[in-house]
Simulated scan of single mutants.
Amino acid sequence: MTHFTSREFNHSISKAKKDALHGPVFVTDRGKPSHVLLSYTQYQQITSENISIVEALSMPGLADIDFEPQKSRIVAQPVDLS
């Protein structure tokens, strides 16, 4: 998995494309992820209808991604069953 700032990406597009052959390339803008560059093969694997969740989650480099989903808040509401 590779990270580029927007500026680095603009100056090293060919390197980013080569790196994308081995896994996703993350481009950051002001320190926050803004784009992901994938090889076409990886893109096809992710978007194909026959891919399993296990295959999607086993993509190289995904274990290194920081992922903090927002906590959901479930509010109970009365239900009218009449």
Rank of each mutant, 00 (worst) to 15 (best):
D29F: 15
K17R: 15
K17W: 15
L38D: 06
F9A: 11
G61R: 09
G23M: 00
I53E: 10
K32W: 14
K17F: 15
N10E: 14
S12P: 07
S12A: 13
T28W: 15
Q44A: 08
I13K: 13
S34W: 15
M59F: 04
P60F: 00
N10Q: 12
V75N: 02
E68V: 07
L57V: 03
L62H: 03
H35F: 06
S34C: 09
I46D: 00
R73G: 11
L62E: 06
L62Q: 04
V27T: 12
I13A: 01
A63Q: 07
F26H: 12
S34A: 10
P60T: 00
L21C: 00
I53R: 11
Q70D: 08
S48C: 14
L21I: 03
N10L: 13
Q70P: 00
F9R: 10
S39K: 10
F9C: 11
D64P: 00
V25A: 03
S34F: 08
F26I: 15
K18W: 14
I65V: 01
V36T: 08
P24L: 07
I53D: 09
P24F: 08
I51N: 00
M59D: 02
D64K: 14
G23Y: 01
V54G: 04
L38S: 04
K32C: 12
G31W: 01
I65N: 03
T5V: 12
K15T: 10
T28A: 10
I65P: 01
V36L: 01
H22V: 05
L21Y: 02
K32A: 15
G61V: 08
E68M: 05
H22N: 13
I46E: 06
I51A: 03
A16C: 09
T28M: 12
L21K: 05
R7H: 08
L57G: 01
H35P: 05
E8R: 12
V36F: 14
E68G: 06
V36G: 06
K17N: 15
K71T: 10
T41H: 11
H11D: 11
D66V: 03
F67M: 02
P69I: 04
S14K: 08
N10K: 13
D64L: 10
L62T: 01
S14F: 03
M59I: 02
G31T: 00
K18H: 15
G31S: 04
V54D: 04
D19V: 00
